[in-house]
Write a protein that binds this DNA or RNA. Structure first.
Lengths: 369, 369
DNA sequence: TTGTAAGCGTTATCAA
DNA sequence: TTGATAACGCTTACAA
């Protein structure tokens, strides 16, 4: 069933039918209803190729990823993708996944835009001075960025409040008596690592403290580096009593190192990690369960899709800038410092101030039957 | 630059130029060369929307994934996707990633085919009686399957030789003196788990052996279940001396369980896992390094893309059925059984027979300069 | 408020 | 071996 047949069936012109379907104002309400009903009845779907050809719009959003680069080493990317695909599937748009050799990446953006093959992009894992941003801005192509950068242009982004999350996590540890806290962070070329360190330092500074020597470590966020870093930190007698980790994968390595050294997570060393809610690596199944700053990255993908659709529709990028607050999820990997003044009995007032709550994804969220 | 302009520039008709570009036979060699050169010179690219409209072909291959189902819990899926995207990017085709509610999955395949929006599909994680296969076959839509099933239809597939891989891994352990071997396997609704168990049992049977009671376990392939299963197996005195795991993630849990129980991997319990070469979970960085049956899943994605292109071009599915042999990569997680007759000194002849070799991805594969 | 008709950039049919 | 010309199915001036 195509437009001509539908129009013929209704005894109307293609024009009118097209306008009715596309929500143009100058069409009689009665006509519109008729058209809509018939379209539904015959399950009419406009041919996307024809529409593309006529409008010049591609009906496609794309996400490019460098074939060889880190992105693929990063399971978070795919979780983001899942959320994005979920959102886009609810629209008439398509999501095109495109691999590109790293050295042709900018070129590919340019080509896709100039050839009108893509209406908008999601940029993932931006660097602080990400060249894709000025490039796409210059091309006038709509895009949304997952994360903030230092690029001084008005662009649409969605980020989590990394600084706030790590400040709150640090404050919680401080409230529990910890003073020597280490930070296992990611590659500082990616903005979030910088923000997290800033939050960490700010929370310490607020109590007149600073990180001890060698307590801030930057490295790729893998189990292996988590292990190595934690091992290096914990095997010396003057070890930190708490560790903040930038990912659950890093925390996995921390757990392994602690176990190797005969240290009990929680009792001997407290751990809080940032949790992007990867479905195959759940903080709550850690032993002991891992406390986290939580922000499901899948939801971020979903929201980025919505924002991109808006951006394509012409919404000003200044109005498409969002920062999500992370939940701080308290679990048994965190405990009060065991000091000479005896164990304390739980978070102090400042800790409960900081929105501590349980995992919102737990089953008690479902409505009762 | 479009076809009309290109034709005008050459003083030829659009028809001729189009035919020259598309490799039709009835065009003079000289003309073709002229056209090709000009096309290259002006960097001419046919408009995909126009081409789609004219040909009825979509120029798109798609991969559908259920939003909620296990697939997303599975990091392997994304690695496959990366290989597929890499391949498709080298063609004129697009790769469309589509999320679908699980209950509308078949419907969505049907819609996409009938509306001519997709030229072909990659089916991932097929079940033994996967309903997508008869559905797509009935629709006459080209598709390739990652894995084999019990569906009695001629369809294109790419699979690894799971049975052979696990038979060889088992034989290696047997050669090293192990007798009580456990198998931590995945969900038996997915075909590969069945094949792996078959290989395991076959290798044992060849020596007149069978698995001990409770030694075959099926569960989702996560770190957590690996831990639980290994724990249950290893904490009893009559524990297995070797464990085969269906994934590196499971093996991670096995390592954790062994550590908890004070058992040394290699010395006290040998471990071999199947390795799909996920870039962020490397068997060679395990401590001790993890022996594996190796088959990079990314390459499978790449190859599936090639096969799908062939299938769309009309190649008979019977000629598009491939089974890849896994490499057996020997590492320190495997050691001879420590028996009353003292430690043995390494693999016996039968073991070296079984294509044991080092990780082929190591740097010595690069050509010398 | 509706209709006519001209594109959009290809490919495909048929004739030359 | 080449060239007119008609689709392909939709959107959009412009006209009525």
């Amino acid at each position: 069933m195509n437009l001509r047949e539908l129009a013929a069936h209704l005894g109307l012109s293609q024009t009118t039918v097209s306008r009715a379907l596309n929500g143009y104002p100058d069409v009689a309400e009665a006509t519109r209803r008729q058209v809509m009903d018939a379209a539904r009845q015959f399950n009419y779907r406009p041919n996307p190729a024809a529409r593309r050809l006529a409008t010049g719009r591609a009906g496609t959003v794309a996400i490019l990823f460098p074939v060889e680069r880190n992105l693929l080493v990063d399971p978070h990317f795919f979780e983001l993708l899942a959320g994005l695909a979920d959102m886009i599937a609810r629209t008439e748009m398509e999501l095109s996944l495109r691999a590109t050799p790293p050295d042709q990446e900018l070129d590919n953006y340019r080509r896709l835009v100039n050839a009108g093959r893509v209406d908008g992009f999601v940029l993932s894992s931006p660097t602080l001075q990400d060249p894709r941003i000025p490039e796409l801005a210059a091309l006038g192509a709509p895009f949304v960025v997952h994360g903030r950068t230092e690029v001084a242009l008005p662009y649409a982004y969605l980020d989590i409040d990394n600084e706030d999350a790590f400040a709150r996590a640090t404050a919680l540890l401080l409230d529990l008596g910890h003073v020597d806290i280490a930070l296992l962070n990611g590659d500082p070329a990616l903005g979030f690592a910088v923000d997290r360190e800033r939050g960490f330092r700010a929370a310490l500074a607020e109590r007149g403290l600073a990180p001890f020597e060698g307590r801030v470590r930057n490295a790729p966020m893998t189990e292996e580096t988590g292990y190595r870093s934690a091992r290096a930190l914990l095997e010396r007698p003057e070890r930190p009593t708490a560790i903040l980790a930038s990912s659950v994968l890093l925390a996995l390595g921390v757990y392994r190192a602690a176990r190797d050294l005969g240290l009990a997570i929680g009792r001997d060393v407290s751990v809080i990690a940032h949790d992007d809610a990867l479905p195959y690596l759940k903080a709550e199944t850690f032993d002991p369960p891992l406390a986290t700053t939580l922000s499901p990255i899948r939801h971020a993908g979903y929201r980025l899709g919505e924002m991109l659709i808006d951006r394509i529709a012409g919404v000003d990028p200044q109005n498409l800038q969002e920062i999500l607050t992370c939940d701080l999820v308290f679990r048994a990997s965190v405990a009060p410092l065991r000091g000479e003044d005896g164990p304390r009995r739980g978070p102090t007032s400042a800790a409960s101030r900081s929105r501590t709550k349980d995992d919102p994804r737990s089953s008690d969220r479902r409505p009762a039957r």
